[in-house]
Design a protein around this nucleic acid. Structure first.
Lengths: 137, 137
DNA sequence: CTAACTGCAAACGTTTTGCAACTTT
DNA sequence: AAAGTTGCAAAACGTTTGCAGTTAG
């Protein structure tokens, strides 16, 4: 899938069960142009920079849909905002609490072994590792 | 430290650099009575159940202070609310996304090895592991 | 044609802020 | 008296909802 090509993006959305409307294509393009960790506000700003008609509610609804369809992943590292991660492959995160910078850690660079036994009746959804660092001092 | 004894709690707060005022003692008692994962709203409800005079703003300010002083730890597993964890020892979390239930995982039950090299100029703050599970289906 | 989607504005829940009054030292 | 803390109300913030009009299949 080539995010720069609207047709490729369109096909991709359809294939994932998402009806490719104009706002969804614009949002998808922002997200998939490069691997990124963006807040809803970031995405709203980028989309409305080229098309002022897209509503903030549409951005939120679309992001919710993308999460439900597995196109993007929510990353919770900061209580003030949710990051949307267009890298859906297995990986973890490094978060710099001083700068707010969030970066990926390839899955193979972290070994989580010996997971505890899960409560009965539950199935594993994900194992998220956040390495929190601080810059300076 | 015995959370049921006001004097013990008072000494503990002072020792951690927190001036032990009435609202702070009430909040500390709710938090330290047992290991718990509580939202600010949970704590507000519990405190105001016995003393209606405590303001919600005071609960938030106090929780922020407790976090800054290392008395409690923020847990970010759900974008809709922050949990405050009175267990400050090394451990991780198991979160059931279906039920909202959050439980501790003793540190020794998860092995995180082979951490990636940290960016230059940064120091490690914490490594948080969240095991996300789902109930049913 | 019809179900799904959109923009808009208003509502929402959580958290923060401004401030005068009140403690504590 | 000074410094810090409180309660209150209002504001701010990110996010969700209701709805009439529009669009994709």
């Amino acid at each position: 899938m080539n995010a720069a090509d609207p047709d490729s993006l369109k096909r991709y959305l359809r294939q994932r069960g998402v009806k490719p409307t104009a706002p969804r294509l614009q949002i998808a393009q922002v997200l998939f142009a490069r691997p990124a960790h963006l807040s809803a506000e970031d995405i709203y700003r980028q989309v409305t920079a080229s098309d002022r008609s897209v509503a903030k509610a549409t951005v939120y609804n679309t992001l919710g849909l993308f999460v439900a369809k597995g196109l993007v992943r929510e990353v919770l590292v900061d209580s003030s905002r949710v990051f949307y991660d267009s890298n859906t492959g297995p990986h973890h995160h490094l978060y710099d609490v001083s700068t707010g910078r969030l970066t990926d850690i390839p899955a193979h660079e972290v070994d989580v072994t010996a997971l505890p036994q899960l409560p009965v009746g539950t199935t594993l959804e994900a194992v998220d590792v956040v390495v929190r660092v601080r810059t300076g001092k």
